[in-house]
């Protein structure tokens, strides 16, 4: 087992984890504050990726594209919140699942309408091109390290926003007691729209960042959405700390599992059987992890305060 390979996979796992954190933090915030399951969060991720790809293609600048992804996803989020989501807060989860499932259909088909069925491609910005040499002389792309850095910054920013600002105070108050904060004269409807748009912007940013690694296409948000749900359920729904921890756990376990499981199995069974069985088990690994964690701690690792 070569150490450089393992190190590379660990970094890949961290990068994947921070990307999941960008998705999961918005999802968990929306659930924590508004009590809403938003299946359409993956669509906002897609909107961000498409906005970035379209603007980057038009202007030639990835950075403008990134700004567009944040703005576009936030605007789409705010619009959806005002038109649809706002009517769902008082409903049970079943109605929320159905309504946001419908939103996925609308977003996916609408995007296909606007951009066609062919995937778009987004180039890595020249500033972040190239590779860094890891110890053990293995090259590692700077762009992936930049995603890790961006994830860390967002985590720090969210922490400061929630714990140090007036908006954060209102968000925490909204989580604790909705009626009371409304009674104290805070415009709760606007607060909800802001939180939803913030979550949407983070999802859009994740979409744009990943869009440069993979292709930008309709349906790209759905696998990520499911993983983000796994993350927030593992972490404890409503807890941003849980989302960060869960995202890194899922990212690292998934990435290294794909490397290590076939290797571990090959000491018991033939290499080809180990490769196929290992791949099958590795793709199930995070769901097994989630089932185990929920079986032992039914409200996740960091249960949010009552409510």
């Amino acid at each position: 087992m070569q150490i450089p390979l393992l190190l590379e996979q660990l970094l890949n796992g961290l990068q994947f984890g921070f990307m999941l954190f960008l998705m999961a933090s918005g999802l968990t915030l929306i659930f924590g504050v508004m009590g809403l399951i938003n299946l359409a969060h993956g669509s906002l991720y897609m909107v961000g990726a498409f906005a970035c790809a379209a603007v980057a293609a038009a202007t030639g600048s990835f950075w403008l594209g990134l700004v567009a992804s944040l703005a576009g996803a936030a605007a789409a989020g705010a619009l959806v919140e005002v038109l649809v989501i706002r009517r769902l807060y008082g409903r049970d989860h079943l109605d929320q699942v159905l309504a946001t499932f419908a939103l996925i259909l609308i977003f996916s088909e609408g995007t296909r309408w606007l951009f066609g069925s062919f995937p778009l491609y987004l180039d890595i910005p020249p500033l972040l091109g190239g590779a860094l040499t890891l110890p053990g002389s293995a090259p590692y792309p700077i762009y992936r390290l930049a995603i890790i850095g961006a994830g860390l910054l967002v985590a720090l920013g969210l922490y400061l926003l929630i714990s140090r600002t007036r908006l954060g105070m209102r968000i925490r108050a909204g989580e604790a007691d909705r009626e009371m904060i409304a009674a104290l004269g805070i415009d709760i409807r606007t607060l909800y729209t802001i939180v939803f748009a913030l979550g949407a912007a983070l999802a859009g940013m994740a979409g744009a960042l990943v869009g440069a690694l993979q292709s930008v296409q309709v349906g790209m948000g759905e696998p990520v959405l499911i993983l983000a749900f796994v993350v927030i359920v593992i972490g404890g729904i409503g807890s941003i700390r849980g989302a960060l921890f869960g995202a890194l756990l899922v990212g690292v376990v998934d990435t290294t599992g794909r490397l290590l499981l076939p290797l571990a199995l090959s000491s018991f069974i033939s290499p080809s059987a180990a490769a196929s069985t290992g791949a099958a088990l590795a793709s199930m690994l995070i769901y097994v992890l989630m089932a185990l964690i929920l079986a032992l701690r039914p409200r996740g690792l960091f249960p949010a305060a009552a409510g």
Partner: peptide, 21 residues
Amino acid sequence: RTSGVYFIMITLAFAQMIYYF
């Protein structure tokens, strides 16, 4: 053992396990 959203999500996780398998 879970309820509410957690139940929705854990049943999803089990189905995904079988799907990926």
